[in-house]
Design a protein around this nucleic acid. Structure first.
Lengths: 350, 350
DNA sequence: GACTCCTCCTTAATCAATTAAGACCTTAAT
DNA sequence: ATTAAGGTCTTAATTGATTAAGGAGGAGTC
């Protein structure tokens, strides 16, 4: 049984293909009788409706927004920050009646076909490491693109927060509370699976721009407060999971002298640090202060964190891409806010 | 500046369109020199690469799997159970190198174009109420379809758990512990936004099949234990949120006599019930037992629940659709498991 | 009766590619 | 010298629709 197309129906009825097309797309162009006969025959032949791909080609629009994310999709769906952003983006897509095409970018096996063959009208790219081939492939498509968080590419639309300022705000908060012995736990600096202490050089050469800048915000705030950054223990983990945070927490809290405050660059990591503190019987915030980042999983745990308007960012990204208004390339900076909860307090007097 | 196509490049170089196509898709068919010249000219003219839509049309495959979900996307992304399923599905899509096209199905404004125009090779439909128009539209596309959880449509591939058995297991657990005064909190029965006590008739006429069957499992277990179902307070909420669960919890716990055990048909709802218990100063499990469903947000809170293999279900759905093997329509039932944690215990002696 | 105006349908161009089959030329083997 | 074999490129059919422009016929108006 061959495929049923408009032509099949047209032939069967002895009318032109155009007529059948009108039956589906503009019923008012046809007499009611013929339209009904067409529909009957379509039904009878098992016609699946106008082929969407052919339609897309003819109409010049795909009806979808492509989303590219550095991680495996399962991982992306596990990240509360990403989920929040997706929600905003999805809402914008929904409002515009277009689909959201989530494109996989397998680690290691970076096939370029994915981006090249994606049937979309625009791309939203989120958190790619510097120089990731997918970015070049996206730009090669010459479609509207917005890059979120990282990397910033001059001449292209960019959405993000003021990373150094936000990170500095987190650090200053504990510094003002009087903490002098800090520890830092970060994920997403590199793409190489490394977990362990990070040298200064490794810190500065991070492949992910936003995290690199976030880190520099921590450093700057410390140095402003007269703290020698090279003396601040810095633990890097490969995955943004609570378990990884716990590992980082144990590493940091195992130092002598023990840090009295730990800065984590995600909430999930911070929750893991809290787990480690609980393992060691340390009271929070009495014996240890912890600050997260993103306000994505912080509320329940009473975690002090930096709030980012992730949903608003997603919605804005979607609107910019879907509005059709070819906004001139811009760097849009979204606000952040320090949310103080119960995971931070002045250090215990020694 | 007109659009650059293969033809533009061909004309510029005085070669045929086919040659240019080969330069991109099968470099070995061309002399190295010509191929390079073609690439240079393509670059110079700002060619964006072979148009994916045209490619799709010619090749007869879209390279995407369509995902349809009854709720707004923002809501879907907020549901841990859905997220778990997405993770599995996304992993399968990733393995196959295809995209995941998430299709919006706006509440109220149910435009049929979304499904009709989706450029996909197959559909995964999740949790649609009985008779939802999108379902018919999906089947009209004559593409491979798998329906997850609800509604079961004979003759089409279906994935789900044994809902009545799973629900009965949850109910029997507290019944065996000795509870006699139960309360039930459910979400997702109807599509009409109602929140409040649900009559027997309303319970049985639920639009969502899986939830309807889940409820019947609760009822059956109760009746087996000699409990009069009509005496079991049943509170229905419109949204699967912790806040809604708290509301249901307050309603149920405000009854006299107060239930000693509450069955909730999602973990999120159950967490809200726990919140309500905390509000009232009730000890769990001392004064109140709570059972959730899905094991999607239960571990942290020590919630007793029914575990579903959501990721495995997602992965299986993806594999079935992407394997190309036109599996004969089947009803695949996945296992469930009662996970007993610390939110259930025998009732206090009165 | 001639004119205009509709209504309904057809013609034909267009969207942007892929690919089997064939043509042409060069090289190598017999 | 002839034939076969390769390598390189072209021809032309194909994928499945949309839509502006035009034509045929009937109805309404003067």
């Amino acid at each position: 049984m061959a495929r049923v197309t408009l032509q099949t129906i047209a032939d069967r009825l002895g009318v032109s293909r155009a007529t059948v097309s009108y039956a589906f797309s503009r019923p008012d162009q046809l007499s009611e009788g013929l339209r009904q006969r067409i529909m009957e025959v379509a039904d009878e032949l098992g016609y699946a409706g106008p082929n969407p791909t052919a339609r897309s080609l003819r109409l010049g629009r795909a009806g979808a927004l492509g989303l590219i994310f550095s991680e495996t999709l399962a991982y992306a769906f596990a990240d509360p920050y990403a989920i929040g952003f997706f929600q905003g983006l999805a809402t914008a897509a929904e409002d515009a009646g277009v689909g959201l095409l989530i494109l996989p970018l397998p680690h290691g096996d970076r096939r370029s076909e994915t981006v090249r063959d994606a049937v979309v009208d625009s791309f939203c790219v989120m958190s790619l490491p510097d120089g990731h081939p997918a970015l070049a492939e996206v730009f090669a498509r010459k479609l509207p693109v917005v890059v979120v968080d990282e990397p910033y590419v001059p001449g292209h639309l960019f959405l993000g927060i003021d990373e150094p300022a936000a990170a500095a705000a987190a650090a200053r908060h504990v510094l003002r509370l009087g903490h002098r012995r800090l520890g830092v736990a970060m994920v997403g600096l590199h793409d190489d699976g490394y977990t362990g202490w990070a040298t200064q050089e490794r810190q500065e050469s991070a492949a992910f721009e936003a995290m690199r800048r976030r880190r520099s915000g921590y450093q700057q705030a410390c140095e402003e407060a007269g703290i020698d950054w090279s003396g601040v223990p810095f633990y890097e983990v490969a995955r943004n999971s609570r378990e990884a945070g716990r590992k980082a927490g144990h590493a940091l809290l195992g130092r002598d002298p023990r840090p009295t405050a730990i800065l984590a660059n995600t909430d999930v990591l911070a929750l893991g640090v809290l787990d480690a503190a609980a393992d060691l019987g340390l009271e929070v915030p009495g014996e240890l202060s912890v600050v997260g980042f993103s306000d994505s999983a912080a509320e329940e745990a009473g975690l002090t964190t930096i709030r980012q308007a992730k949903q608003e960012m997603g919605a804005a990204a979607g609107r910019l891409l879907l509005s059709g208004a070819t906004a001139e390339p811009e760097r849009l900076t979204f606000p952040h806010e320090l949310i103080v909860r119960t995971s931070t307090a002045p250090p215990a007097r020694t």
